[in-house]
Every structure is written in structure tokens, then in C-alpha cells.
Simulated scan of single mutants.
Amino acid sequence: MELKPRIKGILLVIISAMLWGVSGTVAQYLFQDKGFSPEWLVEIRLLSSGIILLLYAFMKGNQDMWTMWRSKRTILSLIFFSVVGMLGVQYSYFATIEYSNAATATILQYLAPVIVTCYLAISTKKIPNLQEILAVILAMLGTFFLVTKGNIHSISISKLALFWGIISAFTAAFYTFYPRSLLDKLGSTLVVGYGMFIGGLAFCFIHQPWNFTGQWSISSIIGVIFVVLFGTLISFHCYLKSLKYIEPTEASVLSSVEPLSAAFLSVLWLKVHLDTPQWLGIICIIVTIIILSRAKNMESVAEL
């Protein structure tokens, strides 16, 4: 029996979000149990995924892969997106995991919708509505509980984890709103494929792939393969395919499964302990995502 399009879309976006959440937890295992460095994993993930996506686009043959090279402006824009957006969000996310855990890193990164909301309010000189103001307050409250465990006199995560977590949120916000013109010109497969490859190539000048530290074993090999294939390629494919069946705002709401899956798997598998205030912080930020997505959806309906 064939699934209805809407159900298929919902399942696809949930699968992609869960894979992203699990991928973060696998990365935590590689960093903390196997001694891998986030630098090495980031460049291998970006280079491998970028090459595979570009080969896929080439074999599919329905896109001009060399369009970008005909415009200096497009080239510079793509390089800027690759280094600041793609590489920035990948490295800052993995660095946050290294200094804390996958659950904390994922939750801090999910402050990005709040940053986007504030940026749009400033750039358009439009006062946020009540829903958006409530979302910002909830996000700040959630971050406070997550970082301090509800005690204003203490910080429950390291300063480096907090620093990279905030950077992760800002780069994720940049990744969201910057590449709109690139997506219109090149399409999502080429933008992400070139973005990953160029970002990974640029990072090789900072950290060479052959400078490896860590313990190779069957589990670590499986972990690396999972991060590259399932946490990047398959999750990306599922998310894009889901947009054929459901609205982007719905996909955004459903992707809140990611921080939940990262949190639960960190607790169950890696024995990460989260106190009640931290769980409350997670809930606050997930509610924030839902409020912002619903507010955007209501605006879209009003414009019709």
C-alpha cells in the first residue's frame, strides 16, 4: 500500500532530523571515546560528502555544473558561503560537541531561528509580533537553564562549549538566509555539493587530513561512515525530498525531533546526565522553534 504524499513527507523529514541528531551523538563518541579530532572529522565529512554529491549531479546530467564559473560574483558568493556558512556551521557544531556533548551542541545550534528573527526585524525595521517576542524570551530562558542548570551563579558547561555553541547558532542562521540567490541560480544539490567540497578544501590549509589522531576500530570506522553517509548525504536527501510533499514551515517544525533524538541518545548510549532544569531548557527551545515556524506559516497564509 502506497503512503499518502503528506504522510511520506512527514516520515522523510522525521527520518532526516533523527539522522542528524544521531550523527551528533556518534561524533561525540568518536571525539570522547576514540580520540578523534573535530578538525579531521569535519574535513573528511565535507570533502567526502561534497565529492559524492557533485558526482551524483554529474551522473544525473540534468544540471550545468559549470554555471558558477562564468560569473565572478557567483564564485565569490559561493566561496564566502562555503567557508563561513558550510565550514563554519560544521566545525563550530563539532567543536561544541567536543567540549560538551551532542545534546547541548544541538540545542545551542537551534537558537539560529531566533537570530534570524532578530536579524530580519533589524534589517526590515519591523517590530517583531507577540509570538516572535515570546519565542525570543523562551529561547533565552531555555539557554539559561541549559547553561546554568537554573543557578545564576554557575555555568554547567565550559566557556569553550558555550563560545562554539553560540558561533554554531550564528553560522547556522547565516547558512539559512545567505544562499537564497545561489539556490535560485545553481539549485540545492550543486550549492551544497560545491559548498561542502570548497569548505573542506579550504579547511585543509588549516588542518591537513593526514594529521590524524584517534583509535581505529570496527566501531570507529562504522561511526565515520555513519556521519558521512547517514548524517550528511541520506539525511540531506530525505529532507529535500520531504519538501516535495509538505510545506517548508511544516518541515521546520518537524525537524525539532533532532535535538530530542540527540538528547535521548546521549543519555541512553553515552550516559550523559541532564538535570531537570536542562530538560526544561531543551523543551523551551523546541517550543521556540515551533512558535517561530507557526508564526511564519501564519504570515504566509495571510499573504495569499
Rank of each mutant, 00 (worst) to 15 (best):
A57F: 09
A57Y: 08
G61N: 15
N62Q: 13
D64Q: 14
M65N: 15
T67N: 12
T67I: 12
M68P: 07
W69R: 12
W69A: 14
K72S: 12
I75P: 04
L78G: 00
I79C: 10
F80C: 00
F81M: 00
S82A: 06
V83A: 04
V84L: 04
M86C: 03
M86F: 02
L87S: 01
Y91V: 03
Y91S: 05
S92L: 09
A95I: 09
A95M: 14
T96S: 00
I97A: 01
I97H: 01
Y99T: 06
Y99S: 10
S100Q: 03
N101T: 01
A102E: 01
A103E: 02
A103Y: 01
A103I: 03
T104I: 04
A105T: 00
A105Y: 00
T106D: 09
Y110C: 10
L111N: 13
L111P: 10
V114W: 11
V114G: 14
T117G: 12
C118S: 15
C118L: 15
A121Y: 11
K125C: 05
K126Y: 07
I127W: 07
Q131H: 10
V136P: 08
A139P: 11
A139R: 14
F144R: 12
F145H: 05
L146G: 11
V147C: 07
V147G: 07
K149A: 10
G150C: 02
I152L: 02
H153W: 07
H153P: 02
H153E: 07
S154R: 11
I155N: 01
S158V: 06
L160M: 09
L162V: 05
W164N: 11
W164M: 08
G165Y: 06
